[in-house]
Design a protein around this nucleic acid. Structure first.
Lengths: 120, 120
DNA sequence: ACAAGTACTTACCCTAAAGTATGTATTATG
DNA sequence: CATAATACATACTTTAGGGTAAGTACTTGT
């Protein structure tokens, strides 16, 4: 665990925002390049770790597992493992994570509109 | 402009994702801690630079202007300046930026639900 | 004459996040 | 006995983004 530098303005923002700005609250949990992408795929149903990896070829295993752990810690995804060999682990959205459906869907919808040049 | 390191997997992802994953497409444009926060405020109507700054006390001026320029370059916000002294510059959402309303609103909605413990 | 206000710019430093590479446990299978 | 498969872990390096501090131009107010 890296020590937190208290003078960082992004740290200040955490305090401010949790009170006043709803979007900042969200960014604290999924304000990262990979997290929404991961959530988008995990939303498709319980997926095994390896399936998620295959769905996002460009992500490295370190970064993937790191974010999965974080998302789990933040209560957005649920990890389930069967005690078999080779290991069998699945990830799915929690109730809270499912609450992000509208966000993810709105993103996907915007991407299609944008690519179709419908805003131009 | 910093040179791009082509071996970065996040760079690879840009190619892959623009074709296949709509969420990645979105992350290319607003996949950053501050951008959605800025958009959330700019959505409230044409705002002066200083008003945006005041709305997000924790952000530094460098980072704010940097992202505003980027958002403008990506066609999400529109900058308008009146040639007066002191300068008068306003920022507002473009059609494309307004297309992100649902995303921003869904985020805000989720934040309230989450804080209210409605997913717990 | 000096500070204040606006919307920036620029140079430099630092850190958090990402990337690279390799290793681990367990069992089945050839 | 070595290899494959799964789901990670860990040490180390690199980079992009963020933070700090100072400066610019032009005018109004004191």
């Amino acid at each position: 665990m890296a020590a937190i530098k208290p003078s960082s303005t992004i740290q200040e923002n955490k305090q401010y925002a949790l009170e006043l700005c709803p979007v900042t609250y969200v960014m604290e949990k999924i304000g990262n390049y990979w997290k929404p992408i991961i959530l988008f795929h995990v939303a498709k149903g319980p997926l095994r770790y390896s399936e998620i990896k295959r769905a996002i070829p460009a992500i490295t295993e370190k970064v993937l597992i790191q974010h999965l752990k974080q998302l789990e810690a933040d209560g957005l995804v649920i990890r389930e493992s069967k005690p078999v060999v080779p290991p069998h682990v699945t990830y799915r959205l929690s109730a809270s994570g499912k609450g992000l459906y509208p966000v993810i869907e709105a993103m996907a919808a915007w991407a299609f509109e944008e690519r179709a040049g419908r805003f131009a």
